[in-house]
Design a protein around this nucleic acid. Structure first.
Length: 646
RNA sequence: GCGGGUGUAGCUCAGUUGGUUAGAGCGCUGGCCUGUCACGCCAGAGGUCGCCGGUUCAAGUCCGGUCACUCGCGCCA
């Protein structure tokens, strides 16, 4: 160790290199070649050294990524955030046994000479592959036990293991890259929002429970026995209040908390939104403000993938449901659904004809270009799939070279079949599937079929980000079970046509200034022009069956704010996690979150949720009323009054 | 809450029609190896086949239940 730190060495950073110096690494001198004491841990990162550095004495710190032990010659790949550098030692060196005895993932500091590799030993796959470090001294900073999962290599591991040892998992290349991407995306979003004239404001994390929406996470109040804070499901009311306060353009990378069950694209508990709101704007102004931000961010990180240029296509909700069978159309899928009810009404295919006349059903047709030569078994398989997904079956017509085929073609009159073929613009060699049900159910099922057929026929466009807006959502809808008229989305959206529409139109025909941003079939965001007029709000809630007293009681805070001069305003809140997920091309949201919870909303590493002490509960005036414990309840998440309060 | 999938060594997986001592790769331990970069070679340790019950002469394999993880539905103004 004597040779290690005391000896002054020449500065490793020449002026040209200094500019690339990562944060936190100070040059060990003023870069004028004046000798200085070497930094305790590193003069360079593990991704930095090049052929031009040959001859310098340098110091690197990092993790032992891999070792190749030839008995009398030892290679160590040293890894840090920035890259890999090969270090080499031979048996004649004092430090050889130290390196040989250090397990992978131990943290070491090496000091040595930068050596040019001979032509045949250059590693072209490594940016630092022209050089290696001849190790003269080594310090073991931290030893590693035998690993529960390997950092080097790309073996897959079960997710609970990865989450339990997330700090190891995050060292691995792909997740590490995803988290860096996330950081860069958020920085790019901030820059672009500021360029658009938005300012970032914070809003409370401890707030009040709101009666609408998802289940809240509650936080008990110590000072107010029996009362609770709630974590915000979104800063919705606060951002509107900021508009009322005159701040004009607000944004925030906002944490949102909702106690709902997880999905592959929905993290349990918490997620982040690019929350923004603007005053004195129309719907078009909102679109014009956010489109360049989203398109710009996606282009910045697209790496060759095409991005829909602004302005994005705007698809009315009704059209989306008809043509794509979804309010979040995946425009990478070229198939377009059409309504073909008239061809079946009163026709020879009795099943559909009866449903149309008897139940008010409609028939939606999903084209399957080029599918005519698929074997019978393919159609049977899709039929079975349809049954698994709750449909009675999946009718189809095959347009073969020798005419229409299949059970429906046998029964439906030839001229009707031909008219249908003409409407759908199908050729010999194509096929078409049908969904027959009440309008909403038929649309949704046709949407499923559209997706399924697209995958089966391998027609999904790849390497693109296809954006669109879904606009003109209905303000109200009828609850199928109760017959009641309800808000279909956000009750605080402005109805199109304002008060007059509410007073004169059939509520089910009223549209809202409510819109979604969709990318590749993923709902990135919903948003709206808000209803800032108490009179219109009372009227809208009245249609949905709520009394003025109810509105006053539950939303009095907002209403009150709107009584002292509120600007017309609107905004949206694209999901950060989903944006990063799309850019990282990951199918699961947990791959772009540094410390996610598992599907049961547990943090396996921190053991949350955990028990708390009886004293803590008493201070909060809380007595537990627990369900009977299951026979074998152990491990993380067990709630006990006397548990691990540490 | 409901439905599908998975569960065999620390990890990834194989395991035939139910039939002798449950295998491979990675990792781990020991030995050999001076130009590798997924280094190589030799040897070794490591298993309640998720758990409980059943059928059977015999169960990793078949049946029932249960638990865990995961995907989906419900839920997500």
């Amino acid at each position: 160790m004597a040779a290690l730190t005391k000896r002054p060495v020449q500065c490793g950073f020449r002026p040209t290199v200094c500019r690339r110096r990562p944060p936190g690494i100070a040059p060990s001198s003023d870069c004028q070649g004046i000798p200085a004491v070497m930094h305790a841990f590193r003069t360079h990162t593990c991704g930095q050294l090049r052929r031009s550095d040959v001859g310098q004495t340098v110091r690197l710190s990092g993790w032992i990524h891999r070792k190749r032990d030839h008995g009398n010659l030892l290679f160590v790949d040293l890894r840090d955030h920035y890259g890999l550098t090969q270090c080499v030692a031979d048996v004649s060196s004092d430090i050889f046994p130290v390196l040989e005895g250090a397990r992978v993932e131990s943290v070491i500091t090496v000091t040595g000479r930068v050596i040019a590799r001979s032509e045949e030993t250059i590693n072209p796959r490594l940016p630092t592959g022209d050089v290696e470090i001849g190790v003269d001294a080594v310090t073991v900073q931290s030893t590693a036990d035998v690993l529960p999962l390997q950092v080097a290599g790309d073996q897959e591991y079960p997710e609970d293991l990865r989450l339990t040892y997330r700090f190891l998992d995050l060292r691995r290349e792909q997740v590490h890259r995803n988290i860096v991407l996330r950081s860069r995306v958020i920085t790019a979003i901030r820059q672009r929002m500021v360029e658009q004239g938005f300012l970032e404001y914070q809003t409370p994390i401890l707030t009040a429970s709101s009666p609408e929406g998802a289940r809240d996470f509650l936080v008990p109040s110590r000072l107010h026995p029996g009362r609770f804070y709630a974590l915000p499901q979104a800063p919705q009311q606060f951002k509107q209040l900021l508009m009322v306060s005159g701040f004009d353009r607000y944004f925030q990378i906002a944490p949102c908390f909702r106690d709902e069950d997880s999905r592959a694209d929905r993290s349990p508990g918490e997620f982040y939104q690019l929350d923004f709101e603007m005053s004195f704007v129309t719907q078009d102004d909102v679109f014009n403000a956010i489109e360049p931000v989203l398109a710009g961010v996606f282009e910045e990180f697209a790496e060759g993938r095409a991005v829909t240029p602004a302005p994005f296509p705007r698809i009315p909700f009704d059209e989306a449901m008809l043509k794509y069978g979804s309010d979040k159309p995946d425009l990478r899928n070229p198939l377009i659904i059409q309504d073909v009810t008239p061809h079946f009404q009163g026709g020879g295919f009795g099943l559909f004809a009866k449903l149309i006349d008897g139940k008010g059903a409609v028939v939606r047709a999903i084209p399957a270009p080029g599918a005519a030569d698929r074997p019978r078994g393919w159609y049977d398989k899709l039929n079975a799939w349809a049954r698994e997904n709750g449909a009675g079956g999946l009718g189809y017509i095959i347009f073969g070279e020798d005419g229409p085929k299949g059970p429906i073609a046998k029964n439906l009159e030839a001229d009707r079949v031909e008219a249908l073929r003409g409407q759908m613009d199908l050729k010999a060699g194509d096929a078409v599937f049908f969904a027959c049900d009440k309008p909403l159910a038929a649309a949704k099922f046709a949407g499923l079929v559209r997706t399924k057929v697209c995958i089966e026929l391998e027609m999904l466009e790849t390497g693109v980000f296809k954006f669109c807006w879904t606009v003109d959502f209905p303000m109200f809808e009828r609850n199928e079970d109760t017959g009641q008229i309800e808000f279909s989305h956000n009750p605080f959206s402005m109805p199109q046509g304002g008060l007059e529409a509410l007073e004169t139109m059939d509520p089910l025909d009223i549209k809202a200034f409510q819109y979604d941003i969709v990318c590749n079939g993923v709902e990135l965001s919903s948003g709206a022009i808000r209803n800032h007029r108490p009179d219109i709000m009372f009227k809208a809630f009245g249609i949905a069956g709520y009394s003025p007293e109810h509105v006053e009681e539950h939303f009095g805070g907002m209403l009150n704010a709107f009584r002292y001069g509120a600007p017309p305003h609107g905004g949206a809140a694209p999901g950060i996690d989903r944006i990063v997920m799309l850019l990282a091309d990951e199918p699961n949201i947990r791959e772009v979150i540094a410390f996610p919870m598992n599907g049961q909303a547990q943090d396996l590493m921190m053991q949350a949720p955990g028990g708390v002490s009886a004293a803590q509960l008493k201070e909060l005036h809380i007595a537990l009323d627990l369900p009977k414990p299951k026979p074998k309840a152990q491990g993380a998440g067990t709630v006990t009054a006397g548990g691990d309060a540490g």
